[in-house]
């Protein structure tokens, strides 16, 4: 049987998610033995076009050119997976969606007229159909391996969407919110990182995006009792996954 063709694409991002592939060390060799890595600019110079069995897409859509590129990729892909917060929720750069782009351009570039950027940084799913979204900033290697393994076996990835709190309980990490009054986003954030931050005695800052049915309103009220102002609570949610949290927040 021919090896399935795998492609890795980058849009507006930091490379952190796609580089979890060489970060897998020996896993990289296993992936290369199992898949035909047809397109991966970050690791391979030969570019093989055509139809891809699975495309891993990193990064958000933030320029007009990227809209064209993602549409072409969708047409040539059987199973399209977004990897990371940028691709799945617009990323940290989606903070500009809440502000005036013109002012942002002027604040950073001496010649803002040369900057070709869309008003909003948006998730891939805003423009094309996505078959599976893998959250995280960065994604976890285990998550990515599960996505690849499930693709080979033609089943849904076994990746949970409950909150980080469950993971803390399982690890026996004392709750930083209850015990120390730290405004932790764990109760509304998706599991998948291994609940690292609370085990370091600090707040989760939501890099894996919203969990299923996040009760943002109730957590905000809890934060108020900790003495956070409404503005501070807004800032807490306006982080790496601002666009995704904002969607829920807006509803309430």
């Amino acid at each position: 049987m021919d090896k399935p063709r795998l492609a890795v694409f980058k849009f507006t991002s930091c490379d952190g998610c796609q580089l979890s592939i060489p970060d897998m060390e020996r896993g990289l060799v296993d992936i290369a033995n199992t898949f035909d890595i047809a397109y991966f600019l970050g690791l391979k110079s030969r570019k093989s076009t055509g139809y891809y069995g699975i495309s891993l897409v990193e990064g958000s859509i933030s320029t007009p050119d990227e809209i064209k590129r993602i549409r072409a990729i969708r047409e040539n892909t059987h199973y399209l997976v977004t990897i990371g917060a940028c691709a799945t929720a617009g990323g940290l750069q989606a903070l500009r969606n809440l502000k005036d782009l013109g002012a942002f351009k002027k604040a950073v570039y001496p010649k803002p007229e040369h900057i070709d950027a869309l008003k909003d940084s948006l998730p891939i799913s805003h423009y094309v159909h996505v078959d599976f979204e893998l959250w995280g900033c960065p994604i976890s290697r285990e998550g990515l391996l599960e996505v690849l393994a499930s693709f080979l076996r033609e089943r849904r990835p076994n990746i949970q969407a409950y909150s980080v709190c469950f993971e803390c309980k399982r690890k026996g990490t004392p709750c930083v919110l209850v015990a120390q009054g730290i405004p932790c986003l764990g109760p509304i954030t998706r599991t998948g990182c291994g609940a690292i931050c609370p085990s370091y005695g600090r707040d989760c800052y939501g890099c894996f995006g919203p969990s299923e049915d996040p009760n943002i309103k109730s957590l905000s009220l809890r934060f108020e009792t900790l003495g956070l102002s409404k503005d501070e609570i807004k800032l807490r949610l306006a982080g790496i996954n601002s666009y995704a949290f904002g969607k829920y927040h807006g509803k309430e």
Partner: peptide, 30 residues
């Protein structure tokens, strides 16, 4: 160079000081 701009310098304004290290990490995954 067609690496798209992400405007870190702009959106960092007005953030709390303790948020900054977590945010700037995302400039580069390497």
């Amino acid at each position: 160079i067609f690496e798209p701009p992400r405007f870190f310098e702009a959106f960092l304004k007005g953030r709390l000081y303790h948020e900054v290290p977590d945010m700037v990490a995302r400039i580069c995954g390497i």
